[in-house]
Simulated scan of single mutants.
Amino acid sequence: MKRVFPNQRTLLIFTGGPGTGKSGTARRFLEYLGNDDIVKISYDEIKEKNWDIFGFDNEKQKDRLNWWCLEEFYLTIQKRMWENKTILIEYPFYQRHKPKLEELIQESGYDAVTVYLYTDPETVYRRGAKRDEEGDRHPGHLLTSYHKETYRPEMLHSISRVAPTFEEFTASISHKEYNINLGLDIPVDVTDFSTVSYEDIYQKILAYESKA
């Protein structure tokens, strides 16, 4: 069954702190919708693509490349808005990203929906540690020097990586408000992913856009 929105020109924003499962939740929501016309744009995927193309030799180069990737991310959203596509984006967006996203929404006349994923700090801390241990992330997330053509998996074991304590982790995110609250705001408790109702998210969007 293909599910659509009353307004095709809708920007779906999946946000939340590290470890809240944004990528997986967004993917499952798209599977629920069964709508191949929706365009998914991931800032992380853009970063990983450019890390593989350009590489970096130190933290400063990596930061500079990431800022360039962020501009590509915004331009990609803008291009898809010109094409009148329904768009889904996912990332731990916080107040630093809000002004630019708000500007894009206002200039395009798009409907915005913020799906804010949240759970308790201990849960996200454990999930993040498990993800790093399983090694299923692009190595560019963990390294300060990376070039695809010379990278070897053993490089991850040769670097000194000290996982942050729970206190350090909470301190690093305490100043970030991940619910950027653009358009319709839908908070979703992801303590247990099996209890997330994609039908409920969809129906809230339908009700919101039908009233517009």
Rank of each mutant, 00 (worst) to 15 (best):
F5D: 01
P6I: 06
N7P: 05
R9M: 10
T10W: 06
F14C: 08
P18R: 03
P18I: 07
G19F: 01
G19T: 01
T20D: 07
T20N: 07
K22S: 05
K22C: 08
T25N: 07
A26M: 12
A26Y: 02
R27D: 08
F29V: 05
D36G: 11
D44F: 04
E45Q: 10
I46R: 01
I46G: 02
D52P: 07
G55F: 07
E59K: 07
K62R: 09
D63T: 14
R64N: 11
R64A: 13
N66P: 05
L70E: 14
E71N: 14
E72H: 15
L75H: 11
Q78N: 14
K79C: 05
M81V: 01
M81C: 03
L88E: 13
I89F: 10
I89L: 05
Y91L: 02
P92G: 04
R96S: 10
H97Q: 08
K98T: 10
E102Q: 14
E102V: 10
E103T: 08
L104H: 07
Q106D: 09
Q106A: 15
E107S: 14
E107G: 11
E107V: 14
E107L: 15
S108M: 01
S108D: 03
G109I: 01
Y110M: 02
D111V: 13
A112D: 00
V113R: 00
T114A: 01
T119W: 00
D120S: 00
P121S: 03
E122D: 11
E122C: 03
T123L: 02
Y125H: 05
G135R: 03
R137A: 06
H141Y: 10
T150E: 13
P153K: 05
P153L: 09
E154P: 08
L156F: 08
H157L: 15
I159L: 10
I159E: 13
R161D: 05
V162S: 13
A163P: 12
P164C: 02
T165N: 07
F166N: 02
F169S: 04
T170G: 06
A171V: 05
S172E: 04
I173H: 09
S174T: 12
E177C: 10
Y178N: 04
I180A: 05
N181K: 08
L182Y: 03
L182V: 01
L184E: 01
I186M: 04
V188D: 00
F193Y: 09
S194M: 02
T195I: 03
S197D: 09
E199A: 08
D200H: 13
Y202A: 08
Y202W: 12
Q203C: 09
K204M: 11
L206F: 02
A207F: 05
S210W: 12
